[in-house]
Amino acid sequence: MDSVYPAAPLEAPKGSVELQATPEQQHLLPPAPPSYDQATTTPAETTGPAPVPASTSTTQHTVVVVPGSPYGPEPMDVQCPYCHNYARTRVSFKPNSRTHLIALILCLFQLYCCVCLPYCISSCMNTNHYCGMCDRYLGTYDRK
């Protein structure tokens, strides 16, 4: 049976450059690992108090920034986070407090025939966006 390992160590090919660390770079190198004999022998027992590890407490704080809705007043092309398809959103309009306030003001001015107008004009209501493929709710554009 032939040996898998060579009998002599391999030599570097001709023309290759072997890098040596300069004394200025020695402090950057990690310490050499212990030899097999050093690693397998049991360490001598020491007397005296056990070394106390340095207590370092680090507190990490996480700051969460919630951006405004990425959706606008018009349908838009998005990738659905549920079905992962690219599709144009389907929008529906929902009345908000601003819509009701405008209707109330029209009532106070006795413009009863115009009370339904804020409920018919999309710019007076919030816009809900739904996926065009799976019809799941994606987000709302709030009108301020």
Rank of each mutant, 00 (worst) to 15 (best):
R143A: 03
T89Q: 05
L19E: 10
V91A: 02
C124A: 11
C131N: 07
L138Y: 04
T46C: 05
H100L: 13
A7G: 06
L101Q: 10
S97A: 15
P95K: 13
H27K: 15
P95C: 09
Y71C: 06
P13G: 08
D77W: 07
K144N: 09
G72K: 13
P95L: 13
T56Y: 06
E11Q: 14
Y5Q: 08
P33L: 15
S57C: 05
P23W: 01
C114W: 02
N128I: 07
Y71K: 08
Y71V: 07
G68I: 05
S97T: 15
P30R: 13
L10E: 09
S92K: 15
T58M: 10
S16Y: 10
P73K: 14
H100D: 15
V78D: 02
I105R: 02
Y130T: 05
T58A: 13
C131K: 04
Y119H: 05
Y82S: 09
N128A: 08
D77K: 14
P81N: 12
K14L: 12
T140P: 00
L29C: 11
I105A: 06
L10N: 07
T47M: 02
S16E: 11
P67C: 05
T41P: 00
F109K: 02
A39L: 06
Q110C: 14
P31N: 13
P53F: 01
V78H: 08
L117S: 06
V52E: 11
G68M: 12
D37L: 10
K144H: 08
S69Y: 03
T47L: 05
L29T: 04
R136Q: 12
P53Y: 01
Y36L: 13
S123R: 07
Q79P: 02
D77I: 12
Q60S: 04
S122I: 10
G132Y: 02
R143I: 07
P49L: 03
G72Y: 01
